[in-house]
Design a protein around this nucleic acid. Structure first.
Lengths: 325, 325
DNA sequence: CTGTTAGCGCCTTCAT
DNA sequence: ATGAAGGCGCTAACAG
């Protein structure tokens, strides 16, 4: 076809300095032959792979699944492809995942840190791989992140219960090393304080993640001397476990016990008792993180450490509404 | 350090023909320097990337999320990393996804075909990229696949309803171009036939995927001259929509209308009325597909076109149990 | 057991 | 507007 290999390269990449005529010929030939440029060779030479690493703890968790969907779609619109790894909240697997991402020469990284240790993120900060933390952050590390405004979420949930007349509110919290759990707890506390109510230690159970954790936590709360009349839960999953325990104890929801969850998963509206919850923009979280990462890549990896805290919204359903007895 | 670059390469890859002494020295030095081999260069040279392409329609769908989790975990144990793409059931995006996977030089591919067209899979069959279809198959194409035994699932669900005394059973089916929808429908039919019951067209609605589709389908069924006393649904998601419509119509579940879903998502046990459903091994589906793909890779891409059909199981809960009136 | 040579496919740089 | 040269980091193939 009488044209050098690198004119082809330029034509394919849409560079200028190629006459429209030859460009058209090259493109046509490429199409006809089903030519696909080799991303490995391209990446090796140009040090730009157009791949983003995505490391989450549990892809089967509906929350992360939605976040990853947002990530994948946003990445695609920017021309990036994603490489996915799971950590299962294990610090070792997180380290391993990051090693793989480095080996893969990804252009940037999205990470939901396990937060049981901080070495990984500190290492990242010391390195030159652009990254954005996804859904979790370290308040004392200067690492860019995108999260939801969970302090406000916890506040809204608690204030709603207070507004219904509850004075005896318990919180089934998440693992306190995770920022979202700490923030929701902080919002809970701050609402109580704003209403001059005491924060009692026997009104809280920590570390709930799975549905079963919620079930166990609620049983514990119901076994205590003074029972709460309302329970704010770390997540919807936990809330479902709590609701089961409450029902098993013969209590009615919301008459005997009001429940508020967190996340607003699709099923909340179809639960045994439709669940009042705090809605968080899951897709948007992923999209925003990609946006931020891409803008960092465009600025040559410079952070400026702008972070984002997306707004949340209280969704009121049967499990906590109306006037209490 | 006095050793050639390629002795280093061999040591790092654990090849023999390296003295234990030098090997130890190399490994130690690599560790100390935090050396990470470049997978692009490695892949370019060896034509083996240790990456698998995974193409699914909707990662936020709990079913696919669970499948992908199985895929990621199995891939990891075999030393592979996954590259993820979504198609949103769009044929164009499926084509694009496959093009990207080829460009990425993945060693193998896992694909949930949109099935609105078959070109992609036919192209794959003509090419030399090893692949396994994930959760869907073409009965008339010799492409390896891993699916669940949905004919049996549909049969079990329907037979259960028949056993409860129902003679007037409707089916809210999925899109008939998708193999799982066709199989569940086939199982439904075959159970009716086995009991010498007629298959009536006005007892079926096709094409339901989302919760809203189920809602609409149930409204339609309830508006017909002869109403069913039981509804078997394509998926749990659809079943939830159906249940909502049934409740809205003032009917009780299961007294006035028995419902059976499909998938057994985590949430089924906690629904308004706990849902009787067909449990499918989602994680195992992903794991099995990886296993099969890896074994193909080991045989130099040879298929032997062994496929797998994983067993399913009926889970009986409130929405369809007991003796009917 | 170890070193040398060559080149995977592409892009960058420098000529022309 | 196009071509030639060189090399990204690594490993296969061959020497020694």
């Amino acid at each position: 076809m009488g044209v050098s290999i690198n004119t082809v390269s330029r034509a394919l990449r849409g560079k200028r300095d190629v006459s429209p005529a030859t460009k058209a010929r090259v493109l046509e030939a490429a199409r006809r032959l089903g030519y696909r440029p080799n991303k490995l060779a391209r990446g090796l030479r140009s040090t730009k792979t157009w791949n983003l690493g995505v490391v989450v703890s549990d892809i089967a968790n509906p929350f992360f699944a939605a976040v990853v969907k947002g990530v994948e779609n946003a990445a695609r619109t920017y021309g990036y492809t994603i490489i996915l790894k799971e950590t299962d909240e294990s610090y070792e697997r997180e380290e391993e995942a990051l090693r793989v991402m480095v080996a893969e020469q990804v252009d940037g990284l999205l990470l939901t840190p396990a937060q049981s240790q901080r070495n990984t993120v500190e290492t990242l900060l010391g390195g030159d791989l652009p990254f954005v933390l996804l859904g979790r952050y370290f308040s004392d590390l200067d690492a860019p992140y995108v999260v939801t405004d969970d302090v406000r979420g916890g506040f809204l949930a608690t204030e709603h219960l207070l507004g219904l007349g509850h004075r005896n509110i318990a919180h089934v919290a998440g693992p306190m090393h995770i920022s979202s759990a700490r923030d929701r707890w902080a919002g809970f506390i701050s609402a109580l304080r704003a209403n001059h109510l005491p924060v009692r230690k026997d009104r809280a159970v920590m570390g709930a993640v799975r549905l079963e954790d919620g079930h166990r936590a609620a049983q514990e709360l119901l076994g205590r001397r003074v029972q709460p009349t309302a329970i704010f839960c770390y997540s919807d999953l936990v809330a479902f476990g709590v609701m089961r325990a409450v029902s098993e104890a013969g209590l009615r929801i919301p008459e005997d016990m009001a429940i508020v969850g967190y996340d607003d998963m699709e099923f909340c509206a179809h639960a045994q008792v439709p669940l009042t919850t705090v809605r968080i923009p899951k897709r948007a979280l992923g999209e925003k993180a990609v946006e931020m990462l891409v803008s960092m890549l465009r600025n040559g990896g410079q952070t400026g450490t702008r972070s984002a805290r997306l707004p949340v919204e209280l969704v009121i359903r049967e499990s906590a509404r109306g006037v209490m007895a």
